[in-house]
């Protein structure tokens, strides 16, 4: 393996790859994504759609396939895509390359949905995701590279699926892969040793994107995060949950879920009122105020909960 080689592998649509060990044939349909660790293609095999990940670095393929296998062993968690095959194959250029094949998760990317979904719907999806993260954490693993780009709203299952398991890390080890803006180390709000709070921090950043996409300078400025949060309008009801998660105050995913659910309850109480407002400018402001108000109610609820 040479240092300067980029791990992506370009394959033309229509290419066929035959697995050398397991003799299955995959028909390349279309490129799904490219990253620092390889390329993912939509493929067809025995009439079914699947996703094939291929990389010039064979250890990427082996490592990710290992993780998918582990996730699968805990059957209740269908957080990630299921693993179908791991093999080597010759490319049209006669190079031998490793690849793995997984379930094709069909749905919409959360990057585009996060601003469009109602706050209640987004909150419910994230709440569900928190339960599943908790299961992953209980198995001794952290997702690591948790970000909107790695989340797909599964049309069939109506919930968030996590794709790209390259960052999954055993608790207690150094996070294997991360993205600056979702990384607490980048914001100097914690280290990169894998523990549940690492994922919760990233999930809080995901929620913040519902306000507007988070932009940052080359070096993370903590103040910027807090300013963003305190001046936010749309995500006000989740402000406290987000803040606690950013500060690493939630011991585990279930604690964060509990507070998020509470905020959601308060939010849905105020919903019928919102529904009646018509779209005039003045009323839009009052709608906004209502959301702020419900945020305060949610916060008070939270305080009462903590005090109890």
């Amino acid at each position: 393996m040479m240092s300067s080689i980029h791990p992506t592998v370009r394959l033309a649509n229509g290419t066929r790859i035959n697995g050398l060990w397991h003799n299955r044939q995959y028909h390349i349909k279309q490129l799904l994504g490219e990253g620092a660790r390889g390329s993912t293609y939509l493929v067809e095999a025995s009439g079914k759609k699947m996703a094939l990940k291929i990389s010039r670095d064979p250890s990427v393929v082996t490592a990710e396939a290992n993780i998918l296998k582990k996730l699968q062993r805990a059957q209740s968690v269908s957080l990630g895509p299921s693993l179908i095959d791991v093999d080597d194959g010759y490319l049209p250029n006669r190079m031998k390359q490793s690849f793995y094949v997984m379930e094709y998760v069909q749905g919409k990317p959360m990057t585009s949905l996060v601003g469009k979904l109602s706050l209640v719907d987004l909150g419910r999806l994230m709440s569900r995701l928190l339960s599943e993260l908790h299961q992953l954490h209980s198995m001794g693993y952290i997702f690591g590279d948790l970000k909107l780009d790695n989340m797909i709203f599964d049309d069939g299952l109506k919930r968030i699926r996590l794709v790209d398991v390259g960052g999954v890390t055993q608790v207690g080890r150094g996070i294997r892969e991360y993205t600056s803006i979702y990384d607490r180390g980048f914001w100097r709000l914690g280290g990169r040793k894998a523990d549940p709070t690492y994922d919760l921090f990233a999930l809080a950043i995901c929620l913040m994107h519902a306000e507007r996409p988070l932009k940052f300078d080359s070096n993370g400025q903590q103040q910027m995060l807090w300013r963003f949060l305190s001046s936010s309008r749309r995500i006000t009801p989740f402000q406290q949950v987000i803040k606690q998660a950013l500060l690493g105050k939630y011991r585990d995913a279930l604690h964060m879920k509990r507070d998020l659910d509470l905020a959601l309850q308060q939010l849905s109480l105020s919903r019928p009122v919102q529904g009646r407002t018509t779209k005039t400018n003045t009323q839009r402001i009052s709608e906004r105020d209502l959301i702020t108000l419900s945020g305060m109610v949610a916060f008070n609820g939270l305080m009462i909960y903590i005090l109890l």
Partner: peptide, 13 residues
């Protein structure tokens, strides 16, 4: 490592 079948390779990894 690459001469090993994918299953064994996983363990080496």
């Amino acid at each position: 490592e690459e001469a090993l079948p994918p299953e064994t390779r996983g363990e080496v990894q």
